[in-house]
Structures are given as structure tokens and as C-alpha cells.
């Protein structure tokens, strides 16, 4: 144990690249964010469960992941050891940034995790339900300010979908983008905006403490242990989740793809992964094979439509 500790510390201190990596996982973002955490969890569990001997994580930050995917698609072509973590946010970023490299240029393997969106208002607000919010939105769309994460992200798309489904012009949505979940949450708590949208996990402790009122979640069915209706129940047919997936390099053979898929499936079933999901508060939304390809195509198409409706993509 002592030796192990010492080597870990040494390795951490000099940040040596691993020698011969069985897998190298690219997180197309800076250390610390959701993709990076997913990549590092993959690394830990793949090694711990002995699915892979050595896993290395590489961070390539920038422009909603589009810098990373461009580099991944060109440099790792045909490499069966290269993986990349990506997700729903990249679908939007590819569209708004007009990225020449898209998810079609890599080999999607499986969807791993997902987080549902929560719609909240400050506890002191006179809005008690989605119906109240929609009524306000219909009376004067501009008077309802929505606080959430960056423009074109999952939060913004959710606000756009709510307005559109309620029959309100989505271009009139008064969405106030904040640079991170924490800053958005502070603005909602401080009553600077009418309503807030963010992933449920980020809001959970505030909702439990009673400082924020949760009026709806964006899941298909009610979430276990969460006392709030879905948007669907509230009369708005909106289901959306901020999912994360893993992709392999382009140009790999069918056998190589099958081998990677098998490793990821083994990972998903492992105890270590299920424990990681629990501590991180991610739901298991594992989906692979043709069913995943189909869902991915659907998500991309609907995202393009709503981003055009909001006016972010021409």
C-alpha cells in the first residue's frame, strides 16, 4: 500500500504519459468538466475491472468539443485503441460552430450516462406550476427571463422547446446565458431571473433545502425519489436529456468495433461502473448498437430543428 501510494504520487507529480496504453480516451474539454469526469471514470473502472491494462486520458479543450473531435477524426483514423467521450452538448456545438467535422466522422459506440433537466423558480416566486409559467410566457414572452448555461446548450434548447410546444414564438424566449451552472444557480437563487433550467443534479440540494421550487423535470417518466411532475404530465410534450457517449476512431474494421463495443458493455455491467454512477449522480442510459445509431440520428435532427427555431442556426 505504501509503495503504491508513493508511485501514485510520483506519477501524479510528473504527470508522465502512460507507457503503452491499451486505450487512450480523449476528453474534448478541459480537466474538471462533465466529459473529463466521464473520461477519468472510464479510465479508473476499465483498469480496476481489468478490462484494459492501461488507459490514458488526453484533454483537448475548445469550442464545445469541436476542436477535439476534429483532431480525433484526423489523427486517430483507423486506430482501434483510441476512444473519445462526447455528448449532447457537442451535437449543438457542431451546428452552431458550423464544424466541418461531425459525429458522422467518428464511430459512435454507446450512450453511457444521462442527466435530466429541471425547471425551477425561486421559493418566493408566485409561479407554482408549469401552467403558471406557460400563462406568463403566453402573456408576454420577454417578461419571463430564463437563467441557464451557455447559449445553444441543453438548457437553452430546453427553454426553446418549452416555448415552442406551448405555442409561443421560440425566438422571443428571453434566455440569459451564464458561464457555468454555479453562476446560473446564484442568479436564480438571488431572484435575478424568473426561472432557471439546469441538470437536476445541480439543483438537487437547493430543492431539498427548500430554497428553490422544482416545477418540472424533462424525463419521460417521473424520476424515482423526485417529487415533481414531468413536462409531459404538465401538458408539454418535451423529453430531453443531456447524455454522454463514447465513440471510437473512424475507419476501424467491423471486428475492431465489435471488440470495443464488447469492452464497453463489460464496463457498463461491472460493479465498479454502477458504483461510479451512484457517487456521481449520473443515470445509466446505456444504449448501443443499431438502437443507439437510430436514437443519435433522431437527436441530431431534432436539435437542428430547434436551434433553427430559436434562431441560433441559420
Amino acid at each position: 500500500m505504501k509503495h503504491f501510494l508513493l508511485t501514485t504520487i510520483l506519477a501524479g507529480a510528473v504527470a508522465l504519459p502512460a507507457y503503452a496504453a491499451d486505450y487512450s480516451v480523449m476528453a474534448p474539454a478541459a480537466p474538471g468538466g462533465g466529459w473529463d469526469q466521464t473520461a477519468r471514470s472510464l479510465q479508473t473502472v476499465l483498469q480496476q475491472e481489468k478490462i484494459s491494462k492501461k488507459v490514458q486520458v488526453i484533454n483537448v479543450p475548445g469550442a464545445g468539443g469541436t476542436i477535439g473531435i476534429a483532431q480525433f477524426a484526423s489523427q486517430q483514423k483507423g486506430n482501434p485503441n483510441a476512444l473519445m467521450v462526447t455528448g449532447y452538448v457537442m451535437v449543438g456545438a457542431i451546428l452552431t460552430n458550423k464544424s466541418p467535422v461531425t459525429l458522422k466522422d467518428v464511430t459512435p459506440i454507446a450512450r453511457l450516462t444521462g442527466e435530466y433537466e429541471a425547471i425551477v423558480v425561486p421559493a418566493s416566486s408566485d409561479i407554482k406550476s408549469v401552467a403558471d409559467l406557460v400563462a406568463k410566457l403566453k402573456a408576454n414572452p420577454g417578461s419571463v427571463s430564463w437563467g441557464g448555461g451557455s447559449a445553444g446548450g441543453t438548457d437553452h434548447i430546453t427553454a426553446g422547446l418549452i416555448a415552442k410546444t406551448a405555442g409561443v414564438d421560440p425566438t422571443k424566449v428571453n434566455y440569459i446565458a451564464f458561464s457555468g451552472g454555479g453562476e446560473a444557480l446564484a442568479a436564480i437563487l438571488g431572484g435575478q431571473v424568473t426561472a432557471g433550467i439546469s441538470s437536476y443534479g445541480e439543483m438537487e440540494s437547493q430543492v431539498k433545502a427548500g430554497t428553490l421550487r422544482l416545477i418540472a423535470v424533462s424525463s419521460d417518466k417521473r424520476i424515482e425519489g423526485v417529487d415533481a411532475p414531468t413536462l409531459k404530465e404538465s401538458g408539454l410534450d418535451v423529453v430531453i436529456q443531456n447524455w454522454r457517449m463514447v465513440a471510437a476512431a473512424p475507419g476501424i474494421t467491423a471486428e475492431q468495433k465489435a471488440a470495443i463495443s464488447a469492452d464497453i458493455e463489460k464496463l457498463e455491467k461491472s460493479k465498479g461502473w454502477q458504483e461510479t454512477l451512484k457517487t456521481k449522480g449520473w443515470s445509466d442510459t446505456y444504449l448501443s448498437g443499431p438502437a443507439f445509431d437510430e436514437q443519435l440520428a433522431k437527436d441530431i435532427a431534432s436539435t437542428e430543428t430547434i436551434l433553427k427555431d430559436i434562431g441560433l442556426v441559420k
Binding site: G32, G180, G181, G182, L185, L189
Partner: peptide, 11 residues
């Protein structure tokens, strides 16, 4: 409040 207001805090 559980608000991560900087990159460091989020980590």
C-alpha cells in the same frame, strides 16, 4: 450553498 462558482470549485 453548494454553488461551484469557479472552475476550481467545480472540480
Amino acid at each position: 450553498l453548494g454553488l461551484p462558482t469557479s472552475a476550481t470549485a467545480a472540480i
